[in-house]
Simulated assay, not measured.
Amino acid sequence: MNWDDIGEALWGGLPYYGEILGLVGNSLWAGAILGLVGGLIGIFVMQRDMAFAVHGISELSFAGAAAALLIGADVVTGSIIGSVVAAAIIGLLGSKARDRNSIIGVLMPFGLGLGILFLSLYNGRSATRFSLLTGQIVSVDQGQVVWLSAIGLVVLAGLVLIWRPLRFDSLDPQSAAARGVPTTAVSLVFMLLLGLIVAVSVHIIGALLVMALVVTPAAAAMRVATGPILVPMLAAGFGVVSAVGGILLAVAGTLPVSPYITTVSFLIYLVCRIIGRPAERRARIKGNSREIVGAAA
């Protein structure tokens, strides 16, 4: 095969790619919104050291979606119910990090076990069951994208309303409480918003890999930037690129959407980690120098 044959094969597939792409327009819009909101809320997930909580919520979200699939109800609704219940339990009972980790460690296997039980009782298509774990592309119809977009906008609006007290509570909870910030209420609202975005992310990327849209973009942004404006902008941008880029790549392949989204997200994080390493080293050296000067004084 010469280069002309290769070029013809590549360009000849473009019309078919365009036709397939037309089938996933709804998913592209949903993925863009989820990537945007997931990147923004992920900043506070990282600041509050709650990456483990995202996985715990996704397990009960998976159980709720599997239960809805079993009884013939809307999968997104079941996923939202499971996520909100998990988020409320963690927010109310897990005020301390040690308690929160214990609660999450209990909820995760329980939710996963329930989900597997419901899927084993489901007699429908095996691909439908598998999609709850790995995500799905063409199944997002016009009505669902409206719901997904609406939920994403609700989470975004909620974040904007509590942004300042949430940021204060995330960076210095003791000082926030002393200044009169209602830390318990702020934490509970944040957990409910997190539960909503996890629920809708499960429908796109699957229950097992939801952290690729909620945690990884924010972790990447915090590696290369600082400040209350630049970090959220980068995190949101990384989330959109991961979601939309993963869906575009998945359309051209035969694998589920989740491996593509997680790979794009991981590569962004890897590049940011490499870029941010010199700055991190300089900050460490600067900090050590200050300690030496302080000790000498």
Rank of each mutant, 00 (worst) to 15 (best):
H203L: 05
G237I: 10
G245W: 09
G206R: 10
A212I: 06
T226Q: 06
A236G: 11
A219V: 00
A212C: 02
V210S: 04
T216F: 08
G237M: 12
A225K: 07
G245I: 14
A219D: 00
V231D: 03
A218D: 06
R223A: 03
P232H: 12
I204A: 08
L196N: 10
G227N: 02
G237A: 12
V241T: 15
A243R: 07
L208N: 13
I229M: 04
V200G: 08
P228Y: 01
A207R: 15
M233A: 11
G195L: 15
I197Q: 09
I204R: 05
V224T: 02
A212E: 05
G227K: 06
A243N: 04
S201Y: 11
L208R: 11
L213P: 04
P228W: 01
L213Y: 11
P232W: 14
S242G: 06
L209R: 12
V224R: 05
G246V: 04
P228Q: 00
L234P: 06
V210R: 01
S242E: 08
F238E: 02
A243D: 02
V210H: 02
V241S: 08
M222N: 10
A219T: 01
T216G: 01
G206C: 10
F238N: 01
A212R: 01
G195S: 15
P232Y: 14
V215H: 00
V244A: 13
I204C: 07
V240D: 09
L234F: 12
A236E: 15
A220R: 03
A225H: 05
M222I: 02
R223F: 00
A220C: 02
M233C: 07
L213V: 13
V215P: 00
G237S: 11
V241G: 09
G246P: 03
V214L: 13
G195E: 15
L230D: 01
V231G: 07
A207K: 14
L213K: 07
V198A: 13
G246Q: 04
T216N: 02
G246R: 04
V244L: 14
V200M: 12
L234C: 06
T226S: 03
M233H: 05
I197K: 10
V215Y: 00
V200I: 15
V214E: 02
V241C: 08
V224F: 05
V200K: 12
P228F: 05
I205R: 06
A236N: 13
G245L: 11
T216E: 05
S242P: 03
A219G: 05
A235L: 09
G195Y: 15
P228A: 03
V202W: 09
A221S: 01
L208P: 13
I197W: 11
V244D: 13
A235H: 10
L196M: 15
L230G: 03
S242Y: 11
V210L: 04
V224Y: 06
R223K: 08
